[in-house]
Computed example of a mutant assay.
Amino acid sequence: MVEKEVLIENPWYSSLLLLLVLTLLGLGLVQPSYGQDRMYQRFIRQHVDPQVTGGNDNYCNVMMQRRKMTSYQCKRFNTFIHEDIWNIRSICSTTNIQCKNDEMNCHEGVVKVTDCREIGNSKPPNCRYRARASTRRVVIACEGSPEVPVHFDR
């Protein structure tokens, strides 16, 4: 018990802890704020699948359901990015461009994707999709410090 109290009260220990926190901040390893983190996690759930290089119709049908985009209604269109999250995050460091909502926090990059478009008259949770795999330019909105992707714009 005495050893723990001595360790916490030791100024060297406090300095080391402060240095560690500042180092993590500097390296960008600290998570974004709660709201941005929630939006970042949602972006990953809805748009990131690095394990695949391109999908077919069955891929879209399975992934849209697995990623919970068909529970209450069929999401009409969704894009899965087939890149490592660090490659996607690096898009946030490119030049800012205008988003569809006129904000200036969008960035563009070229990535491998599968676009999933709903086939008319499908019903949740068994929504049906047509897939189109390609390598193309995408635009994502980024926020935070460090900036992380929070919205797939186009």
Rank of each mutant, 00 (worst) to 15 (best):
D153R: 00
S145N: 14
C99Y: 01
R42S: 10
K100Y: 00
C116A: 04
A131P: 02
I91G: 09
T95G: 03
I85T: 04
G109C: 11
P32L: 07
Q41W: 04
T94Q: 12
Y59Q: 02
L27R: 13
V111G: 05
H47M: 07
V139M: 05
M104P: 00
E118F: 01
Q31S: 13
L27S: 04
F152A: 00
I97N: 11
S15A: 12
Q41N: 14
I97K: 13
C142R: 06
V111W: 12
R117K: 15
D37G: 03
S33H: 05
V21Q: 10
S14R: 15
R136S: 05
V48A: 06
N87D: 15
V48Q: 07
C60G: 03
T94A: 08
C60D: 05
C99F: 00
M63S: 05
R45L: 13
Y13I: 10
V30W: 03
C92P: 02
L25Q: 10
S134R: 15
S33P: 02
F80M: 14
V21M: 09
N78K: 07
L22G: 00
N87W: 00
Y40G: 00
I119K: 13
M1R: 10
S145W: 11
G109Q: 07
I8L: 12
P32K: 06
I91D: 10
V30Y: 04
K68D: 06
D102G: 00
Q46A: 04
P149A: 10
R128F: 00
M69Q: 12
Q65D: 11
R38N: 12
I81H: 02
I91E: 10
K123H: 07
R130D: 08
I44C: 01
V48L: 07
V21N: 08
R89G: 09
F152I: 05
K112R: 15
N105K: 03
T94D: 09
G55N: 01
S93F: 14
K68T: 01
H107P: 06
V150E: 06
S71H: 07
D57P: 02
Y13N: 13
P125R: 11
L22P: 00
T135L: 00
R89T: 08
E103D: 12
N96H: 03
N56S: 07
I91R: 13
